[in-house]
């Protein structure tokens, strides 16, 4: 390294004593910064405290009720003894049914939106209707399901009606998750496949969908959690407070965890015993939903890292 002479001569060398740093002045803007940051810290503490207390209360009270019997047996003595197994099973059926309906439809819709004529009028209309469907209140889905599936189609209050209603409600979420996954497939993959003489559909089937599959699945899992916890859409389409044993066909009414909590709190004759059971149900539901969405979110973060974005 070369520093030509004459330059170093101008070095200040030693700086005036006692001024090794500028004296810090406290400005009003510093005070408002401190106050502002304090407010932000309070916000997050409050949010975490309240949300944490929900999880804590439900867990601590619920744990007291949960036992092997509670998870595996049918309710006895007017819902005051026994377990809630039929409600767990019912929620499982409803969720699986909803997904069986919404998954193929949602993925097909996402394929059309991303792969066929994006930007066309048809695509814009579909996108608009998905956005609006996503904002429809859950109880309105319930009304629709009741009028159409229960009454017009004559499925009655049943697993089928409830699953279809929940499925329609889950559709926008599944479509947008699938779209995100399909759009994340690099364009170069498609070009490579098409350049080898593959047709459009072959490219979708052999290249786009397999690459997008993990992303689609995590999106779907995230929605499974939400569907499992929904109450309003099944209120008049599928759920009932009490069944003798387990459902035997898709046309049976079912017990479901979220509805069971509501029913325990608002119906029945022994509130003090029922509240305890409701804590148990709430814990099962909470654990189920949180575990499912946590799994989906962790999976998604892994994928994002592997995509490098």
């Amino acid at each position: 390294m070369t520093i030509p002479e004459g330059i170093t001569d101008n070095l200040p060398g030693t700086w005036p004593k006692g001024t090794s740093g500028r004296k810090r002045i406290i400005r009003t803007s510093d005070i408002s910064q401190a106050l502002g940051f304090l407010a932000l810290v309070l916000c997050i503490i409050f949010a975490l405290l309240f949300l944490g207390s929900i999880v804590y209360f439900i867990t601590s009270r619920g744990m007291a009720v949960i036992s092997w019997e509670f998870l595996t047996e049918v309710p006895r003595r007017a819902m005051t003894k026994g377990g809630v197994a039929p409600a767990i099973v019912g929620t499982f059926y409803l969720t699986v049914g909803a997904m069986a309906f919404a998954l193929p439809l949602g993925v097909a819709c996402a394929i059309y939106l991303c792969e066929y004529s994006p930007g066309s009028v048809a695509v814009n209309i579909i996108r608009l209707s998905i956005n609006n469907l996503a904002g429809v209140p859950s109880v309105v889905f319930g009304l629709f399901g009741f009028a159409v599936f229960v009454k017009v189609f004559g499925f009655g209050v049943s697993i089928l009606s409830g699953s279809l209603t929940l499925g329609i409600m889950a559709l926008p979420g599944i479509i947008s998750a699938s779209q995100e996954a399909i759009l994340a497939v690099p364009q170069s993959y498609r070009e490579a496949s098409l350049a080898l003489g593959a047709t459009h559909w072959q490219t979708i089937k052999k290249v786009v969908l397999p690459t997008a599959l993990p992303g689609i699945l995590t999106g779907v899992i995230l929605n499974v959690g939400r569907v499992a916890g929904e109450t309003a859409p099944i209120l008049f389409t599928a759920a009932t407070f009490y069944t003798r044993g387990y459902p035997d066909s898709v046309f049976s009414e079912v017990m479901a965890l979220p509805y069971h909590i509501y029913a325990l709190m608002t119906e029945g004759t022994r509130p003090e015993v029922q509240t305890a059971i409701a804590y148990g149900c709430a814990l099962i539901l909470l654990a189920l939903v949180l575990a499912i969405s946590a799994a989906a979110i962790i999976l998604r973060q892994r994928q994002r890292i592997s995509y490098g974005s």
């Binding site: 200040p12 700086w15 001024t19 090794s20 740093g21 500028r22 810090r24 002045i25």
Partner: peptide, 17 residues
């Protein structure tokens, strides 16, 4: 790094200023 005789990385240097 000295500017006008003052060390800019000194902990008491006011970074806003």
């Amino acid at each position: 790094i000295i500017m006008d005789g003052l060390d800019i990385n000194h902990p008491r240097t006011d970074v806003v200023d």
